[in-house]
Simulated assay, not measured.
Amino acid sequence: MAALLLGACSHGMVRRISEPSAQIQQLTVRADGRWAVELRIENFSSIPMQFDSVDLALNVGGNEAGRVTAQPSMSIGPESADVVTTIFAPQAAGKLAVADALAAGRSISYTLIGTVAATPDEAHQRSFEVKHSSQLSPAPGLPGVLR
């Protein structure tokens, strides 16, 4: 029995591919009215993954804000994360909701829904569904910045 257990352990690490996550690390309202969104992509897999593209619908404070898209072309190690910045022109309703939250100094909820395309180490590209909801709060001392 002990030989069976030892034999089972000697095959090395299990290659587990898990769905990644994407969340906003920081949203900055730029002087030109566009937003710079720092998107944190998390690889929960036990192997490295090459993140090829991100296409996420962004909703802030219950209002459509637009699409967060990027082609990061970056490898993220096992159970690690990295950040990609994308800039886009938000829709009017989302822009107003964020401006109101910043002016009032209050938090605002957001939701990201869409897909992240990634290629597991030595495998074929896969498309992963992503849905993440959270809150952003004004960053003290940094006007126009939510974290």
Rank of each mutant, 00 (worst) to 15 (best):
L142A: 15
R126D: 12
I17M: 01
L136A: 01
R106K: 07
E38R: 04
P72R: 08
P90V: 06
L4G: 10
E129L: 13
W35E: 13
V84F: 03
L142R: 15
P138Q: 09
G144F: 04
M1V: 13
N43H: 00
A89Q: 13
P48R: 03
P20L: 15
R40W: 09
A57Q: 08
Q125D: 10
G7C: 10
I108N: 07
V130C: 11
A93L: 14
A92L: 11
R40C: 06
K131N: 12
V84S: 02
A139Y: 07
L5N: 05
A118P: 05
I87P: 03
S53A: 06
V54P: 02
A3V: 07
A97E: 10
H124I: 15
F51N: 03
G144M: 10
A89Y: 12
W35C: 07
E79Q: 00
M49H: 07
G144E: 02
V60F: 14
A65P: 15
P78R: 08
V29N: 13
S134I: 05
Q23S: 02
A3F: 00
Q50Y: 09
Q125K: 11
G105N: 03
R16I: 15
Q23Y: 02
L5Q: 04
P140L: 15
A104S: 05
E42T: 01
L5T: 08
G12K: 01
I87S: 05
E122K: 15
